[in-house]
Design a protein around this nucleic acid. Structure first.
Lengths: 163, 163
DNA sequence: ACGTAATTGCGAGTCGTTCGCAAAAACTAG
DNA sequence: CTAGTTTTTGCGAACGACTCGCAATTACGT
Protein backbone atom coordinates (compact mmCIF):
# COMPACT_ATOMS: atom_id res chain seq x y z
CA UNK A 1 0.00 0.00 0.00
CA UNK A 2 2.95 2.21 -0.61
CA UNK A 3 1.80 5.59 -1.86
CA UNK A 4 2.29 4.75 -5.50
CA UNK A 5 1.02 7.12 -8.14
CA UNK A 6 -2.32 5.79 -9.27
CA UNK A 7 -2.01 4.06 -12.62
CA UNK A 8 -4.99 4.03 -14.95
CA UNK A 9 -7.52 1.30 -14.26
CA UNK A 10 -7.29 -1.80 -16.36
CA UNK A 11 -10.48 -3.78 -16.28
CA UNK A 12 -9.93 -7.46 -17.06
CA UNK A 13 -12.83 -9.84 -17.34
CA UNK A 14 -11.12 -13.07 -16.45
CA UNK A 15 -8.07 -14.37 -14.67
CA UNK A 16 -6.56 -15.25 -18.01
CA UNK A 17 -7.07 -11.78 -19.38
CA UNK A 18 -5.44 -10.37 -16.25
CA UNK A 19 -2.53 -12.77 -16.59
CA UNK A 20 -2.13 -11.68 -20.17
CA UNK A 21 -1.91 -8.06 -19.05
CA UNK A 22 0.78 -9.05 -16.57
CA UNK A 23 2.79 -10.87 -19.24
CA UNK A 24 2.66 -7.85 -21.48
CA UNK A 25 4.49 -5.93 -18.81
CA UNK A 26 7.12 -8.59 -18.28
CA UNK A 27 5.55 -9.79 -15.05
CA UNK A 28 5.21 -13.48 -14.32
CA UNK A 29 2.14 -15.53 -13.70
CA UNK A 30 3.13 -17.26 -10.51
CA UNK A 31 0.80 -19.52 -8.59
CA UNK A 32 0.54 -17.02 -5.76
CA UNK A 33 -0.34 -14.26 -8.19
CA UNK A 34 -3.02 -16.35 -9.88
CA UNK A 35 -4.40 -17.15 -6.47
CA UNK A 36 -5.08 -13.59 -5.46
CA UNK A 37 -6.50 -12.94 -8.90
CA UNK A 38 -8.83 -15.93 -8.58
CA UNK A 39 -9.92 -14.84 -5.14
CA UNK A 40 -10.67 -11.34 -6.33
CA UNK A 41 -12.57 -12.58 -9.38
CA UNK A 42 -14.69 -14.76 -7.14
CA UNK A 43 -15.30 -12.11 -4.51
CA UNK A 44 -18.46 -10.21 -3.71
CA UNK A 45 -16.97 -7.12 -2.23
CA UNK A 46 -13.53 -5.81 -1.31
CA UNK A 47 -11.32 -8.10 0.74
CA UNK A 48 -8.49 -7.63 3.21
CA UNK A 49 -5.05 -9.03 2.47
CA UNK A 50 -5.40 -11.11 5.59
CA UNK A 51 -8.48 -12.86 4.33
CA UNK A 52 -6.88 -13.42 0.96
CA UNK A 53 -3.83 -14.98 2.60
CA UNK A 54 -6.01 -17.21 4.70
CA UNK A 55 -7.54 -18.69 1.57
CA UNK A 56 -11.00 -17.20 2.07
CA UNK A 57 -12.02 -19.57 4.80
CA UNK A 58 -10.79 -22.67 3.02
CA UNK A 59 -12.21 -21.95 -0.42
CA UNK A 60 -8.70 -21.49 -1.77
CA UNK A 61 -5.25 -22.60 -0.63
CA UNK A 62 -3.74 -20.27 1.91
CA UNK A 63 -0.67 -18.30 1.03
CA UNK A 64 1.94 -16.07 2.54
CA UNK A 65 0.66 -12.74 3.80
CA UNK A 66 3.72 -10.75 2.74
CA UNK A 67 3.44 -12.16 -0.76
CA UNK A 68 -0.21 -11.34 -0.91
CA UNK A 69 0.60 -7.75 -0.05
CA UNK A 70 3.35 -7.64 -2.64
CA UNK A 71 1.10 -9.08 -5.28
CA UNK A 72 -1.72 -6.74 -4.49
CA UNK A 73 0.72 -3.92 -4.80
CA UNK A 74 1.99 -4.95 -8.19
CA UNK A 75 -1.51 -5.72 -9.44
CA UNK A 76 -2.48 -2.28 -8.31
CA UNK A 77 0.46 -0.75 -10.15
CA UNK A 78 -0.65 -2.51 -13.28
CA UNK A 79 -4.11 -1.09 -12.72
CA UNK A 80 -5.90 -4.40 -12.29
CA UNK A 81 -6.62 -3.87 -8.61
CA UNK A 82 -7.68 -0.99 -6.39
CA UNK A 83 -7.93 -0.64 -2.65
CA UNK A 84 -10.10 1.38 -0.27
CA UNK A 85 -9.77 2.44 3.34
CA UNK A 86 -13.17 2.12 4.89
CA UNK A 87 -12.51 3.66 8.28
CA UNK A 88 -10.20 1.90 10.70
CA UNK A 89 -9.23 -1.69 10.05
CA UNK A 90 -7.21 -3.06 7.17
CA UNK A 91 -7.28 -1.77 3.63
CA UNK A 92 -9.64 -3.68 1.34
CA UNK A 93 -8.81 -4.78 -2.16
CA UNK A 94 -10.92 -5.43 -5.22
CA UNK A 95 -10.55 -5.79 -8.94
CA UNK A 96 -10.55 -2.54 -10.82
CA UNK A 97 -14.10 -2.17 -12.03
CA UNK A 98 -16.17 0.43 -13.76
CA UNK A 99 -15.72 3.23 -11.26
CA UNK A 100 -17.76 3.32 -8.13
CA UNK A 101 -17.34 5.17 -4.89
CA UNK A 102 -18.05 4.48 -1.25
CA UNK A 103 -20.15 5.97 1.50
CA UNK A 104 -19.47 4.70 5.00
CA UNK A 105 -21.45 5.22 8.17
CA UNK A 106 -19.25 6.48 10.94
CA UNK A 107 -21.54 5.01 13.53
CA UNK A 108 -22.60 1.54 12.35
CA UNK A 109 -19.90 1.17 9.69
CA UNK A 110 -22.41 0.26 7.02
CA UNK A 111 -20.89 0.56 3.57
CA UNK A 112 -22.78 1.70 0.54
CA UNK A 113 -21.14 1.68 -2.85
CA UNK A 114 -22.54 3.84 -5.59
CA UNK A 115 -21.72 4.41 -9.25
CA UNK A 116 -19.37 7.30 -9.88
CA UNK A 117 -22.01 9.19 -11.82
CA UNK A 118 -24.34 9.23 -8.86
CA UNK A 119 -21.86 11.52 -7.18
CA UNK A 120 -21.09 13.71 -10.14
CA UNK A 121 -23.47 16.46 -9.18
CA UNK A 122 -22.05 16.64 -5.70
CA UNK A 123 -18.57 16.52 -7.18
CA UNK A 124 -19.56 19.46 -9.30
CA UNK A 125 -20.65 21.44 -6.25
CA UNK A 126 -17.44 20.70 -4.42
CA UNK A 127 -15.43 21.71 -7.44
CA UNK A 128 -17.30 24.93 -7.77
CA UNK A 129 -17.04 25.89 -4.11
CA UNK A 130 -13.55 24.70 -3.27
CA UNK A 131 -11.78 23.89 -6.50
CA UNK A 132 -11.31 20.35 -5.17
CA UNK A 133 -12.18 17.37 -7.27
CA UNK A 134 -13.71 14.99 -4.75
CA UNK A 135 -12.84 11.31 -5.01
CA UNK A 136 -14.53 8.72 -2.83
CA UNK A 137 -12.81 5.71 -4.32
CA UNK A 138 -9.74 5.42 -2.13
CA UNK A 139 -11.16 7.09 0.96
CA UNK A 140 -14.92 7.06 1.29
CA UNK A 141 -17.39 9.76 2.00
CA UNK A 142 -17.97 9.39 5.74
CA UNK A 143 -21.11 10.30 7.60
CA UNK A 144 -24.20 8.99 9.26
CA UNK A 145 -26.39 6.52 7.39
CA UNK A 146 -30.17 6.91 7.39
CA UNK A 147 -30.64 4.39 10.20
CA UNK A 148 -28.12 6.06 12.45
CA UNK A 149 -29.51 9.50 11.75
CA UNK A 150 -32.83 8.24 12.94
CA UNK A 151 -31.36 6.54 15.93
CA UNK A 152 -29.54 9.68 16.98
CA UNK A 153 -32.75 11.63 16.55
CA UNK A 154 -34.48 9.22 18.93
CA UNK A 155 -31.83 9.51 21.61
CA UNK A 156 -31.13 13.19 21.23
CA UNK A 157 -31.94 15.01 24.40
CA UNK A 158 -33.90 11.98 25.57
CA UNK A 159 -37.00 12.24 27.77
CA UNK A 160 -35.60 15.33 29.49
CA UNK A 161 -34.75 17.47 26.51
CA UNK A 162 -35.46 21.13 27.22
CA UNK A 163 -36.79 20.54 30.78
CA UNK B 1 -8.35 6.31 19.55
CA UNK B 2 -10.75 3.64 20.60
CA UNK B 3 -14.06 3.99 18.80
CA UNK B 4 -15.73 5.90 21.57
CA UNK B 5 -19.12 7.48 21.04
CA UNK B 6 -18.53 11.09 20.22
CA UNK B 7 -19.33 13.35 23.15
CA UNK B 8 -20.49 16.88 22.50
CA UNK B 9 -17.75 19.40 21.89
CA UNK B 10 -16.69 21.53 24.82
CA UNK B 11 -14.82 24.59 23.69
CA UNK B 12 -12.48 25.95 26.36
CA UNK B 13 -10.54 29.13 25.85
CA UNK B 14 -7.62 28.53 28.18
CA UNK B 15 -5.76 25.75 29.88
CA UNK B 16 -7.32 26.78 33.17
CA UNK B 17 -10.82 26.66 31.76
CA UNK B 18 -10.10 23.21 30.41
CA UNK B 19 -8.72 22.07 33.74
CA UNK B 20 -11.85 23.37 35.40
CA UNK B 21 -13.96 21.28 33.05
CA UNK B 22 -11.91 18.24 33.98
CA UNK B 23 -12.34 18.88 37.67
CA UNK B 24 -16.06 19.14 37.27
CA UNK B 25 -16.05 15.59 36.00
CA UNK B 26 -13.91 14.25 38.82
CA UNK B 27 -10.82 14.09 36.63
CA UNK B 28 -7.48 15.25 37.92
CA UNK B 29 -5.21 17.95 36.62
CA UNK B 30 -1.96 16.04 36.44
CA UNK B 31 1.20 17.53 35.06
CA UNK B 32 1.05 15.27 32.02
CA UNK B 33 -2.50 16.31 31.36
CA UNK B 34 -1.70 19.99 31.61
CA UNK B 35 1.18 19.44 29.25
CA UNK B 36 -0.89 18.12 26.41
CA UNK B 37 -3.42 20.85 27.03
CA UNK B 38 -0.70 23.48 26.87
CA UNK B 39 0.71 22.01 23.71
CA UNK B 40 -2.67 21.98 22.06
CA UNK B 41 -3.46 25.52 23.11
CA UNK B 42 -0.19 26.67 21.63
CA UNK B 43 -0.54 24.70 18.42
CA UNK B 44 -1.22 25.98 14.95
CA UNK B 45 -2.88 22.93 13.51
CA UNK B 46 -3.61 19.36 14.57
CA UNK B 47 -0.71 17.41 16.06
CA UNK B 48 0.23 13.75 16.32
CA UNK B 49 0.53 12.08 19.71
CA UNK B 50 4.12 11.33 18.85
CA UNK B 51 4.97 14.98 18.41
CA UNK B 52 3.16 15.86 21.62
CA UNK B 53 5.11 13.22 23.53
CA UNK B 54 8.36 14.48 22.10
CA UNK B 55 7.67 17.90 23.56
CA UNK B 56 7.15 19.69 20.26
CA UNK B 57 10.80 19.79 19.31
CA UNK B 58 11.97 20.95 22.69
CA UNK B 59 9.41 23.66 23.29
CA UNK B 60 7.88 21.61 26.09
CA UNK B 61 9.16 18.80 28.31
CA UNK B 62 8.79 15.42 26.71
CA UNK B 63 6.42 12.88 28.17
CA UNK B 64 5.38 9.29 27.91
CA UNK B 65 3.70 8.35 24.63
CA UNK B 66 1.21 5.95 26.19
CA UNK B 67 0.14 8.60 28.68
CA UNK B 68 -0.24 11.13 25.93
CA UNK B 69 -2.56 8.75 24.12
CA UNK B 70 -4.53 8.08 27.27
CA UNK B 71 -4.84 11.75 28.01
CA UNK B 72 -5.89 12.60 24.51
CA UNK B 73 -8.51 9.91 24.80
CA UNK B 74 -9.94 11.21 28.04
CA UNK B 75 -9.81 14.80 26.84
CA UNK B 76 -11.67 13.67 23.80
CA UNK B 77 -14.27 11.93 25.92
CA UNK B 78 -14.77 15.11 27.83
CA UNK B 79 -15.22 16.89 24.54
CA UNK B 80 -12.23 19.20 24.85
CA UNK B 81 -10.27 17.51 22.09
CA UNK B 82 -11.01 16.01 18.67
CA UNK B 83 -8.91 14.02 16.26
CA UNK B 84 -8.81 13.64 12.49
CA UNK B 85 -7.39 11.04 10.15
CA UNK B 86 -5.89 12.91 7.27
CA UNK B 87 -4.98 10.04 4.99
CA UNK B 88 -2.26 7.60 6.03
CA UNK B 89 -0.02 8.44 8.95
CA UNK B 90 -0.97 8.96 12.56
CA UNK B 91 -4.18 10.52 13.81
CA UNK B 92 -3.93 14.22 14.52
CA UNK B 93 -5.33 15.91 17.59
CA UNK B 94 -6.56 19.43 18.21
CA UNK B 95 -8.65 21.34 20.69
CA UNK B 96 -12.34 21.17 20.04
CA UNK B 97 -13.13 24.37 18.22
CA UNK B 98 -16.12 25.91 16.54
CA UNK B 99 -16.80 23.17 14.03
CA UNK B 100 -14.75 22.96 10.92
CA UNK B 101 -14.15 20.22 8.43
CA UNK B 102 -11.22 19.09 6.32
CA UNK B 103 -10.47 18.70 2.66
CA UNK B 104 -7.31 16.79 1.81
CA UNK B 105 -5.53 16.44 -1.48
CA UNK B 106 -4.88 12.82 -2.29
CA UNK B 107 -1.93 13.75 -4.43
CA UNK B 108 0.06 16.45 -2.60
CA UNK B 109 -1.57 15.93 0.81
CA UNK B 110 -2.39 19.59 1.18
CA UNK B 111 -4.96 20.16 3.91
CA UNK B 112 -7.63 22.77 3.77
CA UNK B 113 -9.91 23.33 6.70
CA UNK B 114 -13.21 25.05 6.20
CA UNK B 115 -16.02 26.15 8.45
CA UNK B 116 -18.82 23.64 8.80
CA UNK B 117 -21.33 25.97 7.18
CA UNK B 118 -19.30 26.15 4.02
CA UNK B 119 -20.15 22.53 3.47
CA UNK B 120 -23.77 22.70 4.46
CA UNK B 121 -25.10 23.00 0.95
CA UNK B 122 -23.11 19.99 -0.16
CA UNK B 123 -24.21 18.17 2.96
CA UNK B 124 -27.74 18.95 1.94
CA UNK B 125 -27.22 17.44 -1.49
CA UNK B 126 -25.73 14.29 -0.07
CA UNK B 127 -28.57 13.96 2.38
CA UNK B 128 -31.11 14.38 -0.35
CA UNK B 129 -29.51 11.88 -2.73
CA UNK B 130 -28.33 9.22 -0.32
CA UNK B 131 -29.90 9.88 3.05
CA UNK B 132 -26.39 10.14 4.46
CA UNK B 133 -25.40 13.02 6.65
CA UNK B 134 -21.85 13.73 5.53
CA UNK B 135 -19.25 14.58 8.17
CA UNK B 136 -15.76 15.66 7.22
CA UNK B 137 -14.54 16.27 10.74
CA UNK B 138 -13.13 12.89 11.64
CA UNK B 139 -12.34 11.70 8.13
CA UNK B 140 -11.82 14.43 5.56
CA UNK B 141 -13.24 14.93 2.15
CA UNK B 142 -10.53 13.52 -0.09
CA UNK B 143 -9.81 14.59 -3.63
CA UNK B 144 -7.51 16.58 -5.84
CA UNK B 145 -6.67 20.15 -4.89
CA UNK B 146 -6.70 22.89 -7.50
CA UNK B 147 -2.94 22.71 -8.07
CA UNK B 148 -2.95 18.97 -8.58
CA UNK B 149 -5.94 19.13 -10.89
CA UNK B 150 -3.98 21.52 -13.03
CA UNK B 151 -0.86 19.45 -12.86
CA UNK B 152 -2.71 16.34 -13.93
CA UNK B 153 -4.23 18.30 -16.78
CA UNK B 154 -0.74 19.28 -17.94
CA UNK B 155 0.60 15.74 -17.93
CA UNK B 156 -2.49 14.03 -19.20
CA UNK B 157 -1.79 12.36 -22.52
CA UNK B 158 1.44 14.32 -22.79
CA UNK B 159 3.04 15.26 -26.11
CA UNK B 160 1.89 12.02 -27.73
CA UNK B 161 -1.77 12.00 -26.85
CA UNK B 162 -3.84 10.52 -29.65
CA UNK B 163 -0.85 9.75 -31.92
C1' DA C 1 -0.64 15.00 56.96
C1' DC C 2 -3.29 10.77 55.42
C1' DG C 3 -5.75 7.68 52.82
C1' DT C 4 -7.47 6.41 48.56
C1' DA C 5 -8.51 6.52 43.96
C1' DA C 6 -6.75 8.48 39.61
C1' DT C 7 -2.57 8.65 36.77
C1' DT C 8 1.86 7.77 35.31
C1' DG C 9 5.79 5.44 33.24
C1' DC C 10 7.55 1.45 31.63
C1' DG C 11 7.59 -2.60 29.06
C1' DA C 12 5.33 -5.75 26.44
C1' DG C 13 1.71 -6.82 23.08
C1' DT C 14 -1.32 -6.07 18.95
C1' DC C 15 -2.56 -5.06 14.25
C1' DG C 16 -1.61 -3.88 9.65
C1' DT C 17 2.01 -3.62 6.69
C1' DT C 18 6.83 -3.65 4.84
C1' DC C 19 11.61 -5.38 4.34
C1' DG C 20 15.78 -8.43 3.82
C1' DC C 21 17.29 -12.43 2.08
C1' DA C 22 18.19 -17.07 0.68
C1' DA C 23 15.64 -20.66 -1.70
C1' DA C 24 12.40 -21.75 -5.24
C1' DA C 25 9.82 -20.88 -9.32
C1' DA C 26 9.08 -18.81 -14.14
C1' DC C 27 10.32 -17.58 -18.39
C1' DT C 28 14.10 -17.50 -22.24
C1' DA C 29 17.68 -19.07 -25.10
C1' DG C 30 20.00 -22.73 -26.88
C1' DC D 1 14.81 -30.59 -22.45
C1' DT D 2 18.51 -28.07 -20.00
C1' DA D 3 20.79 -24.01 -18.37
C1' DG D 4 20.83 -19.56 -17.29
C1' DT D 5 18.73 -15.43 -15.83
C1' DT D 6 15.33 -12.94 -13.24
C1' DT D 7 11.29 -12.78 -10.77
C1' DT D 8 8.88 -14.23 -7.08
C1' DT D 9 8.23 -16.71 -2.89
C1' DG D 10 8.25 -17.78 2.01
C1' DC D 11 10.09 -16.90 6.16
C1' DG D 12 11.32 -14.13 9.95
C1' DA D 13 12.23 -9.81 11.61
C1' DA D 14 11.07 -4.88 11.78
C1' DC D 15 8.07 -1.00 11.70
C1' DG D 16 4.47 2.55 12.82
C1' DA D 17 0.59 3.54 15.44
C1' DC D 18 -1.45 2.33 19.10
C1' DT D 19 -3.18 -0.24 23.41
C1' DC D 20 -2.68 -2.80 27.75
C1' DG D 21 -1.07 -4.57 32.34
C1' DC D 22 0.78 -3.29 36.38
C1' DA D 23 3.44 -1.53 40.10
C1' DA D 24 4.85 3.01 41.59
C1' DT D 25 3.34 7.81 41.90
C1' DT D 26 0.61 11.68 42.53
C1' DA D 27 -3.56 14.52 43.13
C1' DC D 28 -7.14 15.59 45.70
C1' DG D 29 -10.83 15.34 49.76
C1' DT D 30 -10.88 15.32 54.63
Amino acid sequence: MTTTHRSPALVADSVEAAVEALRERGLRASAARRLVLEALFGAEGPLSAERLAEGLEGRLPRSDLASVYRNLETLEEVGLVRHVHLGHGPGLYALAAPEHEYLVCESCHAVRSVAKEELDEIRGQVLERFGFEARFTHFPLVGLCPDCIEESRDHEGGPNAHP
